[in-house]
Each structure stands twice: as C-alpha cells, then as structure tokens.
Design a protein around this nucleic acid. Sequence first.
DNA 1: GTGTTTGCAAAGTGTTTGCAATTTA
DNA 2: TAAATTGCAAACACTTTGCAAACAC
Lengths: 138, 138
Amino acid sequence: MSADRPYTYVLERLNAAGLRPTRQRLALAKLLLEAGDRHITAEQLHSEAVAAGIKVSLATVYNTLHQFTKAALLREVVVEAGRAYFDTNTSEHHHLFREDTGELSDIAPSAIAVSELPVPPDGMTIDRVEVIVRIKPS
Amino acid sequence: MSADRPYTYVLERLNAAGLRPTRQRLALAKLLLEAGDRHITAEQLHSEAVAAGIKVSLATVYNTLHQFTKAALLREVVVEAGRAYFDTNTSEHHHLFREDTGELSDIAPSAIAVSELPVPPDGMTIDRVEVIVRIKPS
DNA sequence: GTGTTTGCAAAGTGTTTGCAATTTA
DNA sequence: TAAATTGCAAACACTTTGCAAACAC
C-alpha cells in the first residue's frame, strides 16, 4: 500500500472478495501492506497490532489472514510444520529460509531457473511451483 | 531395506547414531524401508504398526521418526502447515504434492533443473533446496 | 546392574470454531 | 434492521515431554 494509492487498492480487493472494510481489516491491511514485502505469522501480526493500539483478537487476525489470502492480497507459505507464514508479495517468486531463526525472505523469480517441470496427471493442473532454499549457520 | 541386506543396513545406521536396535525401532524400520519409497506421517505409521500387530505408542513413533531422521534413514518434508511427512528417500530429489488428497510423491532430481542459486549470506550455508510442485484438480 | 528406551498421560503449540454481542451498510 | 463481523473461550489437530516401568547390553 504505497502513499499514492492510500486505501483504494485494499478497498478494491476487499470489495471484490465481498468483505466489508471494517476497522480491523483496514488496520491489519495497513500493517501488512504499508511496509513493503513482509513475511509474517498470525501471532506476529497480532502482537504488532496490539502494540500499535489496534483492538483486535488473535482469532480475527487468523480469519483476516485467510480472507486476505483468498482475496489475493496475501499468499501463504509453508516452510515449517506447525507455523503458517503469510507473504505480502503475491507475485511469482521463491523463498530463502533461515532455519536457525525462522526468518523468511524473497528470492526473485529470475534468480532461480526451474525447467522441465513434470506433466501433471490427468485432471490435475499445477497450482504453483515453490522453491525453498534452506540455509543454516555453517 | 531390500531382501539381500536384511537388517544390516538399518543396524548400521542405528549403531552409527548410537541407537539400540529395539523391537519397536526394528519393526518401524521394517515398515518404513521395506516397501520402497514412502511418504508417511507419524499417525499413518502408528496405524500401520498397530494394524501389523506391533505394540508401539504414538509417542515412540514420533521419537523414532526423529531419531531416524537424525540418523539419515529418513528425511522430513514440509508441505502442509501442521503436518510432518517423513520420506524414506534420503537422496536428493523433489516433490509433487496433491493439495486435495495430501498425497506426496517424488520427482527425480533430473526432472527439474534449478540453476543460479543465490549465494548465502556470510556464515551461512545452503542446507538444501526444495522444489515442491503443487497440483490440484483442474 | 546400569543406562537406555518405552508408554502413558499430561502439557504444549499453533490454529479453528461456536455463539452472543457488536458493528456495518 | 438485517446481515456481516468480532471476540472470547472452548475445541482442535498435531507434537513434545516427564517420569515410572520395562528392556538391552
């Protein structure tokens, strides 16, 4: 959410998804989308929101994250069993995951070339291809 | 664990990891490694073991899976938040994941070419590169 | 015998859900 | 006012842990 398109972008997406622009959703969208590309868990976002004085429950944060994901404002990334990360970068790209800290960052799609993808079985289509580069202290 | 190396392989690995070849560990190893490449969750393996008349608790299955992973008999694969899969194929390869059924299968490393990997930050090394091709009904 | 392993049940995580109260259009 | 949304607490699925009994060497 850059300065020159204040809420229009979010409002459009919410509207397209049939979601009312409530106080909580707008506040969370602001936290999520104003600071550039982010990778965040529900707990982290909830803490941030509370710290910022936004009255919102963890349950609503979870609901909102999933609604935003469905509305294409976010993308879910699975790197650790038992923790869901949400990525504000919804364009095609890959991930670098620091196993010691749980820190997740983007890798530009151009930085990794994936070729010769398998042909999916009949009646199936490729939803997406994820590349996760896992790094750890050497 | 093929017919011509009955328990030697498992015994060696357990030994190398300082793990005693107990009834439970040997039985689980047999289930895991005798049937070729498998992708299995702790619950699934526990069910199989119980069905096969092996007396083992779910806690022990979890412990054993992690010990086997540390001993390089298994590899853990993360494809879904909140569920851990263990792969009996420990060599380098990629995965095809059916999002509707949770079914996981291997993709030969030769089937996907990953190039131009990013250089890890200082003091970090690439632990591994995972490619997950997610498919769903079209 | 001594140290390891097991099993149970309890505790822990992260996430989802039911429902009354609140808010939005 | 009608329908959507929220918050709480309870329920959930999966996983880990503490500790006494059982087992391996």
